[in-house]
Each structure stands twice: as structure tokens, then as C-alpha cells.
Nucleic acid binder design. Structure first.
Lengths: 189, 189
DNA sequence: TATTGTTATACTCTATAACTATA
DNA sequence: TATAGTTATAGAGTATAACAATA
């Protein structure tokens, strides 16, 4: 049985990693593992409904949500994939007969992607699966718990958006306490 | 610029998806997107340090954390990958000269994986990068914010662990309000 | 010159099944 | 019989670079 208590790091963590924060690393580990567990469960359920990759299904959902054909690069932006990956995903979907490509009426560089027959059905069966999975996964949290969570997560994303366009700082080196002695930098001290 | 305000769903959401919960779906969307944004930033930083896939690095971190050679299936369990995938990941790492395989002393079915020379160095450079990324990503949250977050996430994972071993419930069908009229089930009513 | 999309290449990871050898 | 690991195969996604067409 998987242990689902909070993930924690050792007490001497901040000694070992100067500049790091114990609570931040614990937060990050719990965030990533929880999202991962949710996606795993979601995937399990989605695959019972239709054998599509997550990206492929996301693409369909984006198109359906837009309610109109979209240019390839618009989908790629929302999906956070490169144009080359987008081409590959659309190839897969087109092969399955779920989307179609057509010429953009005014800008001839662009290709408009539209849902094909059959795709609407898949989306209509898949979305309830996704939302039921969410309802069940968060069943133990009260409405106010959920609101707290949503706002905390949004604040993290705001910070991450700033970090993503900056050059990362150089971290202080690890100071290992166990077994292996720290490597003496030749020339220091 | 990416919008980092909370992700919300439309007001008529619960009408459209009977049995779904607006706050739960919003929580799920924010959870997944936030984890994704963090992993994106983490990957960006990791790749500046060493050109390893996330799985490959995780494998090294697991081995280093264990402090002793581990059998392949032990790593596979923690990494949540199949034995075939594990073989492939270890092949990659071995090709890069970062791990070695050796025979298990008592159980000849097993193969012990150990860190090779050079791997320790990579782990020592990578972990500070990971933890600094966490510190920066969560910089706007107070210690008590972080503790709240960690406990909420753990409760979600606990629920997910239960769901993962159960047969998923059948979701109620979508009731689309816009554009396309709901498909009338022939024979109903 | 910048944008849109495709093609080509090579690599990583995944899933599945069949297989060997052990226990 | 069950477990540990490998091999084989096929598919999906990624990154990168080069490229054509168009704006």
C-alpha cells in the first residue's frame, strides 16, 4: 500500500543545502506527487473511454471549448508544445479521423484545425469522466479548503511565471554530512 | 504573458456535468497546471546542469538516497514504471556510464544497480538546483501557508490511493446547453 | 525579416507480450 | 507457480535543425 502521509525531508536538510528551504522543498514534493497521482488516476479512467494520449485528448478539448476551428499554433501555445510536436499530435489525430485540416481563408501560411465527426462524441463522453474524477479526488476537502488551495496554487504559478523568464540563480553547493566527506576544492582555504 | 490568475470554470458548469463539482474541477485544474509549471521550470534548470531525462535523474537520486545498491524492481516501484521501462532507463544510464549492474549475491534472478563514478558528482550538483527552484517557487508563501498546502495535498493523495484500487463509477452524461442539442437517446421517454 | 507549418533525425519513455532463469 | 529481468515491437512525445511558403 502506498504511503500517503505528507512527504517530509530530514531535519538537517537546510544544513545540507544552504539557501534551500525545508518547507518549500516539502511543498514542492507534495505538489508534484499529488498532481502525479491525480493524473495517473485520470489516465486510468480516460483510457477506459477512448485510447487517446493525454495530449491528443487535450487537443480535442481545446478545439471543442473554442467552438470553432483554430490555427495550429494557437493550440500549440495552449498545450505548451513546439510546432513540430503539434504537427505530430495532429497527424495522430487526423489518422484516427478525429480532426481535419483546412486552409485558412485569409492567411495562407496557416492551417485551420477542426473537429471531425466522431470527435464530438468522444469529448462528450470524456469530459464527464474527467470531472467525476476531480469530484471524487477532492471529496475530502470542504468548499473553503478548496478555495484556499486554489488561491495558494495561483500564487505559486504567479511566482513561477516570473522565474520562467529569468536566468536561474546559482545554487550554493551541497554540504554532505554522511558517508562521503565533502570534496575539498583544490585551491580553496 | 501567461495568465496566472486562478483557473475557473463557467457558472453553469454543474448543470452541464451532473454529479461534477465546480470547486473540485477548479481545484484539479489548478493543481495540475501548477505542478506542470513547476516541473517545467525545474526541467529548464536541470538541463543546464546535466542532460538527463527526469526519470534518469530520479533514478540516480533514488540510488543516492538509498546509500547502497538496489535491485532493479525496487527502483521501478518507487519510480512507478514497468520492469521493461526500468530496463530501458538503466540501459540509458549505463550507456552514459552513470550506473553499473552487478549480480545479486544470494538471489540470482536479481540485478543490483549501483552508482558509477561521476554519478555522485551529478547528483551533488543537481540536488541544490532542485531545492533552490523549490525555494524560489514557493517564496511568496508563508511557513503556515506551506504547511496548510502540504496537509491539503496529503489528504487528496490519501483519497486518490483509495480510488486507484476501485472500479471507477460511471459518470452521468454531459448536458450540453450551447449550439448542439443533446442527443436524444432513442427509446428513452 | 518574422511567422506558420512541415519534414527529418534521433532519442526517451511507454505499453504489451513473449521469453529466460531463477526461486 | 510466482518473481526478476530482458528482449522485441510499436507507438507517442520531445528536441533540434533545416526548410518552404507566406506575411
Amino acid at each position: 500500500m502506498t504511503d500517503t502521509s505528507p512527504i517530509r525531508v530530514p531535519p538537517d536538510f537546510e544544513r545540507e543545502f544552504p539557501g534551500a528551504s525545508r518547507s518549500a522543498s516539502e511543498s514542492a514534493a507534495n505538489l508534484v506527487r499529488t498532481a502525479d497521482a491525480f493524473l495517473l488516476e485520470l489516465d486510468r479512467r480516460r483510457r477506459k473511454t477512448a485510447d487517446l494520449s493525454a495530449s491528443a485528448f487535450e487537443t480535442l478539448a481545446i478545439l471543442e471549448g473554442a467552438g470553432e476551428p483554430l490555427a495550429g499554433h494557437v493550440i500549440a501555445e495552449r498545450l505548451l508544445v513546439s510546432s513540430a510536436s503539434m504537427t505530430s499530435i495532429l497527424d495522430t489525430l487526423e489518422r484516427h479521423g478525429l480532426v481535419g485540416r483546412s486552409a485558412h481563408p485569409t492567411d495562407r501560411r496557416k492551417v485551420l484545425i477542426h473537429l471531425a465527426d466522431g470527435a464530438q462524441d468522444i469529448v462528450d463522453r470524456m469530459l464527464p469522466v474527467v470531472h467525476l474524477a476531480a469530484a471524487e479526488a477532492f471529496a475530502d476537502l470542504s468548499e473553503s479548503d478548496r478555495e484556499v488551495l486554489i488561491l495558494l496554487l495561483a500564487r505559486i504559478r504567479t511566482r513561477l511565471a516570473l522565474l520562467s523568464s529569468a536566468t536561474p540563480r546559482e545554487p550554493a553547493p551541497r554540504r554532505r554530512s554522511r558517508r562521503v566527506p565533502p570534496k575539498r576544492n583544490p585551491g580553496s582555504r
